[in-house]
Design a protein around this nucleic acid. Structure first.
Lengths: 227, 227
DNA sequence: TTCTTTTTCGTCGTCACGACGATAAACGCT
DNA sequence: AGCGTTTATCGTCGTGACGACGAAAAAGAA
């Protein structure tokens, strides 16, 4: 194997959540060169005996203090342009994580400061390396997956109302959805959500039924994005 | 960078085509250890100054003698279990290619012999490394993409009939589709196919209109797979 | 010619969706 | 207590796409 070109392999995470009616991404401020002081996706080097999903989960827990099962984690893609890291040849495997809102400062165990930033407020070229493109790909993947999977519930706490789920769609897609048609679609699709039996209390308006995530993995037919 | 664990990075290709009413995959017989004599996906090491898509295109042309534009090439996923290659730590970026039927023996410039094999005839554990799983993921990706993209045309020659396109769906999905409803769907979806103006000659039955691939990149609404 | 094969055009019932109207069930205020 | 506000939930209606077919058109084969 020694005759083959040596690469460094990293994992980078696009961690998305919905906070205050905005789609937010978890970013860390880099403490070292290159791109010192710039925002970047959380990530790090894969260890020599570590599986790729394990490396992604490790970085996620290091940065958020949260184990995966609460949300969703999937491989997004691999980026390896020869000039993407000035330190040398680094190939990064990017992962997409969708999490419920976990309160504010992530208090990472890591050195660098981490924080949630609204995706819409980021300007192109603001992130280190090629993280602008990775983030854009992650957001696009998330938008597409809301259409044909029940993954919007990954942005919600374990028990949620139809209105909360609708707010996720409206925030991620940047559109408005009719509450009545959305309610019909969600409750009428087998396996999308399962009723808990209880309702909310102390909120404004009529109490809403609580639901859990269903067992379906695909939406047939899909949730349609307004033209 | 020297303090970080060194990896070898490869690209592997899942090259699919439709031949004789069967979904076929391009495989090479390994000439060296490990897995000598076993079938494997074509692939090879990424060079030190080479971009990942460039490495995939290079391997594809080396194995098939064909430039990409005739078909479709996209990144499938990255596989990096620590024990997936007995020679050491190798991470592979897998790519999915959909090509029209290019006649039989691929006559690769490479040493090992390459050939098309029907996917349905392969038994689990028959391929080297973790290529069984990579192939399964590629086939599943192709099946899913036929639903919501016009990519079925990538399996067809530049000019094709509606019936040829339908045969692609039927072969990849393993189902039968109603010729009349399929015709209505394909010709009625803007941008799916564009009429050439000419028709087939010398075939059995009524001559069929010829079409080219349209400009659409997504199918709205999607082509529905029979339950 | 007549039959067979294949393509292409229609028809009809059903179902899902978008656009609403209407009702139900809580709270806050006077 | 009564009333307005807010939000959730249930219906209705028209439209458009789809599945299941029937039927005509256009070629080669017998």
């Amino acid at each position: 194997m020694a005759e083959y070109p040596p690469f460094a392999v990293t994992v980078d995470l696009v961690v998305l959540t919905v906070r205050a009616d905005e789609l937010n991404v978890l970013l860390v401020r880099r403490g070292i060169e290159p791109y010192r002081g710039r925002w970047a996706l959380p990530g790090g080097f894969v260890q020599i005996d570590e599986d790729l999903p394990a490396a992604a989960v490790r970085e996620l827990t290091e940065e958020t203090g949260l184990a995966e099962p609460a949300g969703h984690l999937e491989q997004l893609g691999t980026y390896g342009r020869p000039d993407r890291d000035p330190r040398g040849r680094v190939v990064t495997v990017a992962w997409l994580a969708l999490l419920p809102d976990l309160g504010s400062p992530v208090a990472g165990t890591d050195a660098a400061s981490a924080d949630w930033l609204p995706v819409a407020r980021l300007t192109p070229g603001q992130l280190a390396f090629d993280h602008d493109r990775i983030l854009a790909d992650g957001v696009e993947r998330a938008r597409a997956k809301l259409e044909y999977t029940p993954l919007a519930a990954a942005f919600c706490p374990p028990e949620f109302t139809v209105a909360q789920l609708r707010a996720v769609y409206e925030t991620v897609w940047g559109t408005r959805l009719d509450p009545r048609n959305f309610h019909r679609k969600v409750t009428g699709t087998p396996g999308f959500v399962e009723p808990v039996g209880r309702a909310t209390e102390g909120e404004r308006g009529r109490p809403a039924q609580l639901f859990r995530r269903g067992t379906a993995t695909l939406l047939h037919p899909p949730m349609l994005r307004p033209s």
